[in-house]
């Protein structure tokens, strides 16, 4: 066993930091896109729009049944082809792994967020809809100002827990050879032959960030548990 030397981690810190920034921006982008699409998907199912809601349900079931790595491979292969068709000339457009990762994570997470929001929509008291009807609020205003704000509020602990899992899952872009936090560590580890130090350091960084975030979620849960008397 070689003696451990963690000074390599300090030297590599700027590179790791840029990797971490990539992980965080991928998480943020996937969160925004996923929440936006997920809300749309959930509404489509909530309104039981005939063909569309069947399509959405199949999509959600599919995404939730296959491994994220396989989804990444699929999109890495499909996105250039689809964009080629969209752009008209039919030739695959090379988009690169970074964009693929952003597109994949956004679309993949949408499936998970949509399930959370769909269930949240079902949990809203029927009286809320009736009160909106009695006030003649339009469907748009009803969802925009009354229903969705309540859903987001009630579901926020679950949405945030899912986002912590998302943050951890971004490490899987390793299979696309991207330089996220883990990717950066892995490249340096192999360059310097310091796998043990690098991987341990990365594990600690992930641990600290995820722990802090779940602590925050737990406090949120507690807060809502007290406000549970709200109904």
């Amino acid at each position: 066993m070689n003696s451990l030397d963690f000074s390599i981690v300090l030297q590599a810190w700027p590179y790791l930091w840029s990797g971490l920034l990539f992980s965080l921006s991928l998480t943020a982008a996937a969160f925004l896109v996923g929440m936006f699409l997920g809300t749309l998907f959930a509404l489509v199912q909530h309104f039981e729009l005939r063909v569309l809601s069947q399509l959405v349900r199949s999509y959600v079931a599919l995404m939730r049944s296959i491994p994220l790595i396989l989804v990444l491979f699929w999109f890495f292969f499909l996105v250039p082809i689809v964009l080629g068709h969209l752009s008209g000339n039919g030739r695959p457009v090379p988009v690169g792994a970074t964009y693929t990762a952003f597109i994949t994570f956004g679309l993949f997470e949408a499936a998970y967020y949509s399930e959370i929001i769909r269930v949240g929509l079902r949990a809203v008291n029927k009286g809320q809809f009736e009160a909106c009807q009695a006030l003649a609020l339009s469907t748009f205003d009803t969802y925009r100002h009354v229903i969705l704000p309540q859903v987001f509020r009630v579901a926020s602990p679950i949405i945030l827990s899912q986002t912590i899992i998302l943050f951890q899952d971004t490490s899987l872009v390793y299979v696309l050879s991207l330089t996220d936090l883990l990717g950066a560590a892995s490249k340096l580890a192999q360059l310097h032959g310091r796998l043990v130090e690098m991987y341990l350091a990365v594990a600690v960084v992930y641990l600290i960030i995820s722990c802090a975030a779940s602590q925050f979620v737990a406090s949120l849960r507690k807060k809502y548990a007290i406000a549970g008397a709200r109904r």
Partner: peptide, 8 residues
């Protein structure tokens, strides 16, 4: 629970 499964 708080370290990505890939890192583990």
């Amino acid at each position: 629970r708080n370290i990505p499964v890939l890192v583990q």
